[in-house]
Design a protein around this nucleic acid. Structure first.
Lengths: 265, 265
DNA sequence: ACCTGAACACCGTTCAAGT
DNA sequence: ACCTGAACACCGTTCAAGT
């Protein structure tokens, strides 16, 4: 309940539609534009919120590399210079995009008895939300959370671990390491499926690429790389959810062992 | 011994010096350039090796963002188009840079009795070599190793774990997860110190930035973020070696527990 | 205060033309 | 076969000028 307090999903209204009834009617040719060549989308004055939402639309449709000041401005029917009245630079825009996305993440009420499972739940939740927005994790990796929603999530993760009896030093280190691991996992996953506009195209491309890699590894000289060649099948399972669950389990076991001095199993 | 077989350190000769005796003498003004305005560096015909070495020089001096086809070409006294006779695109150049850097990594002979410590040793070695080349880890994260030196390292890691009795499936998952963690750690570390040409400048900038972050966290409303505020000191230790050792220890304990069914301690 | 056109100093990549 | 100048279609950011 209280965990959704700060959630803001305005970005999902997107698409530029004014209301439910407006289903992209053609503009009557006799109605001239009010002043100059401005597009309909540019009518409303710019705000930070409108800009972030436009950037998010570009991200979801085309990936982080497509999120340029020029492309976002185009989405709003204006030029790149106009954005600098609201954001000092592109990094500031990326930060706000990341926090708006972080708003989608919901947290459980800390339950001391279930803290290990809850740490995993939150990690999976962060991963899924990140994965829902292409390669946004690239903007998260290596940054210190400062936005309200990123702070809310960090606070929630710490609360769960502290409730479970994890000492402060261990909880802090775990928060940090786990964040690195989640971001890295999502970035790897996004890189695999980055080509191809549609999801089907991306899936097909990944399959073709992985098959080429498998052939390459199989053709490697076995006397030089005996383990690599022998373990092709195990190695090719990368990118799967299995890798993430494996690493996640390692982390939580380890945190628990640090918390209580010995592993319970 | 055999681990250094493929090592190639030619990149470290760098700087454009021809031999030990040539200590940057001024060019006599009466000696006209041989044909046109070509610089001395451009005299030798281009090869893939010369290009990769030039790119590595730019990387070490200015970071990965400075490694552009134009900047590398400039380093060689030519134009960007010339590089495309030797590399299909920038990604191919980055791959070869990464593999040349990976050549610096040395591996221990697998010792079944010490496999856990050896896994850690190799992880630390990879981290140190990556850290020695700015943010090159950004080019490693999310890519499948294909170059000879990257393959050599993966093979070595697998050999150590297999010698220690780690089952193939676990070894493959661990290799993958550990790679993600190392790359992410180095990227985070590099982002912290990315500003400032000299190391002293970078260090000073990081200190200033971290102090600002500390103040920001301390000023946060304690009723909303009780754990974050209470744990500022623990959280600010990020980027330190402690975080890496913590995560590394988690991984190795976890691998061992998967290998033998239960943790020995 | 907010917005804009034009410019500055860059990108990766291509291609016809040279040797 | 290798190299090049020039061009194409982009970048982030600044700034004087407009409203």
């Amino acid at each position: 309940m209280s965990s959704t307090m700060f959630v803001d999903r305005t970005a999902e209204s997107g698409g530029g539609a004014v209301g439910d009834a407006s289903t992209e009617l053609p503009v009557p040719p006799w109605r001239k534009p009010r002043k100059s060549g401005r597009s309909a989308a540019a009518r409303r004055p710019l705000t930070r919120e409108l800009i972030v939402e436009a950037a998010l639309r570009v991200l979801d449709a085309e990936g982080l590399d497509a999120v340029t000041m020029r492309r976002v401005a185009q989405e709003l029917g204006t030029g790149p210079a106009s954005l600098y009245a609201h954001f000092a630079n592109k990094d500031e825009l990326l930060e706000e995009m990341l926090d708006l996305i972080a708003a989608e993440i919901t947290l459980p009420e800390p339950d001391a008895a279930r803290w290990q499972e809850q740490v995993k739940e939150v990690a999976r939740e962060i991963r899924e939300v990140w994965r829902g927005h292409r390669d946004i994790a690239r903007a998260s990796l290596g940054t210190i959370p400062t936005g309200p929603n990123q702070l809310r999530i960090a606070e929630g993760q710490l609360a769960i671990m502290r409730a479970g009896g994890v000492p402060p030093r261990i909880a802090a280190l775990a928060l940090d390491s786990l964040g690195l691991f989640i971001d890295a996992d999502v970035i790897e996953g996004a890189m695999m499926g980055e080509k191809g506009a549609t999801n089907e195209e991306a899936h097909a491309n990944v399959a073709v690429y992985l098959d080429q890699v498998r052939q390459y590894f199989t053709a490697l000289p076995a006397e030089r790389y005996p383990n690599l060649v022998a373990m092709v099948d195990e190695l090719m399972r990368a990118g799967d959810d299995e890798r993430f669950e494996f690493g996640l389990d390692l982390f939580v076991r380890g945190i628990a062992s640090h918390a209580r001095g010995i592993v319970s199993g």
